[in-house]
């Protein structure tokens, strides 16, 4: 979607409308992408006594994925250091409500990609919430990030028809803070583990 199309959607109410708040600077809206800012809540991966993150809930010593992450908060303008090899979950500063016929791609802006931080996420039509971002420093130097900095760019693509996102049954609905992986809630896992045990 182009800037003009996006601005038109921002003015529209209802399911066809786009909502981005806080949009601190209208200059964030570019010709084909919109810059989004780094949020203030982080989940930082930590080393634990467990040798790995497991998904088999029936395993003795299974620990929820949440226990491998530590929450921390910052205020606008404060800094956060992202270390090489560290997984940090965060969100965009902006809460976004996508139209039901538009999906979003969230990418790191090139200035951050060049430092070794790459994010590439697809967000479904109709989504409501701050976009989840999984930060990983692929470089060999720690990078000091600033909360509120324009780190990401959102590219919107119009679909031929509506695809309602759904309600609370969807994962990550109405997010305002980073959410740990729910890979261990995958309903296929118990079946797959049963198959694995029988081999």
């Amino acid at each position: 979607m182009t800037r003009d199309e996006l601005l038109e959607r921002l003015r529209k109410p209802g399911p066809a409308g786009l909502w981005i708040e806080p949009l601190l600077d209208e200059g964030q809206i570019g010709e084909v992408t919109t810059d989004l800012r780094l949020g203030y809540d982080f989940l930082v991966s930590i080393m634990t006594r467990r040798p790995y993150i497991g998904f088999a809930r029936e395993d003795r010593g299974f620990r929820s994925v949440t226990s491998y992450f530590q929450p921390t908060r910052r205020e606008l303008g404060e800094r956060f250091v992202l270390y090489p090899g560290q997984v940090v979950l965060s969100t965009t500063l902006e809460y976004v409500a996508l139209p039901s016929d538009v999906h979003a791609d969230l990418l790191t802006r090139s200035s951050y990609t060049r430092l070794g931080i790459a994010v590439n996420t697809l967000v479904q039509p109709g989504y409501r919430g701050c976009f989840s971002v999984e930060l990983f420093n692929h470089g060999n130097n720690p990078v000091e990030l600033v909360v509120g900095a324009k780190m990401f760019q959102m590219r919107l693509t119009k679909l031929p028809g509506d695809l309602p996102y759904g309600g609370v049954q969807r994962k990550y609905f109405g997010n305002v803070r980073p959410t740990p992986s729910r890979a261990d809630e995958d309903k296929d896992l118990p079946r797959l583990l049963r198959i694995g045990r029988k081999r």
């Binding site: 806080p22 205020e75 606008l76 809460y95 701050c130 305002v176």
Partner: peptide, 12 residues
């Protein structure tokens, strides 16, 4: 988030 957005706008 409503409260936080208000504070972000004010700080900005």
């Amino acid at each position: 988030k409503s409260i936080r957005n208000a504070s972000l706008r004010q700080l900005w």
